[in-house]
């Protein structure tokens, strides 16, 4: 049974369905949260929070708005981004003078060697974007920066970043084609 069938059962209080759903999505939820947060302990905490929220809020899922997996991963991504931003705000306060010279995490995606067809395919397609499109997309999605922060980090105007994000995603779509999503 897929997530689309399981989630409505979870909404009805079916704990067995939740266990199946956990088996199906926990790796994807944790992996995504971890990609954004990096820190394993914090990632686990946020992933647990997301999974519990799936149980509590399964009734909020509306199949007309998209697939269950999209809903779940959107939730996971937003929670991870919220956490990374509040952590950043806290550390910015603590070390206001901190050097900005840390390694730019731009091409983290390309460093991931772990195989997996989807991963490999997405990586290849990200490589086909222009550098600015790729950096705009990955700094936002995998590092949790707002588009204003991305513009600042890349020293380009806001309008450019907005456009690169949209164009980058659309070009990614062309490259990925209609493959399994």
């Amino acid at each position: 049974m897929g997530a689309d069938e399981l989630l409505p059962r979870v909404a009805d209080g079916d704990q067995g369905a939740f266990e199946d759903l956990y088996g199906l999505v926990s790796g994807q939820v944790y992996g995504l949260v971890r990609r954004v947060l990096r820190d394993p302990a914090q990632s686990e905490e946020v992933a647990q929070e997301v999974l519990l929220e799936l149980w509590r809020g399964a009734g909020r899922f509306d199949p007309e708005r998209g697939s269950a997996l999209a809903w779940i991963l959107t939730l996971a991504h937003r929670r991870a981004v919220d956490r990374v931003r509040s952590a950043r705000a806290a550390s910015d306060r603590e070390e206001r003078v901190a050097r900005r010279a840390q390694t730019p995490p731009f091409d983290q995606v390309a460093e991931e060697v772990e195989a997996g067809l989807e991963r490999e395919w997405v990586r290849r397609c990200l490589d086909r974007l222009t550098a600015l499109q790729r950096q705009s997309v990955t700094l936002a999605y995998y590092d949790g920066y707002t588009y204003r922060e991305v513009a600042h980090r890349l020293s380009v105007p806001l309008g450019t970043v907005k456009t690169r994000m949209r164009d980058g995603l659309m070009r990614l779509r062309d490259c990925l084609g209609g493959g399994a999503a």
Binding site: G27, Q28, Y30, G31, L32, R34, R35, L69, A70, L73, T74, A76, H77, V109, G116, E118, R119, W121, V122, R123, V137, Y141, Y142, L172, L176, A181
Partner: peptide
């Protein structure tokens, strides 16, 4: 969503 799935762990 494709980006999300590519981060699976």
């Amino acid at each position: 969503l494709r980006l999300a799935r590519a981060a699976s762990g």
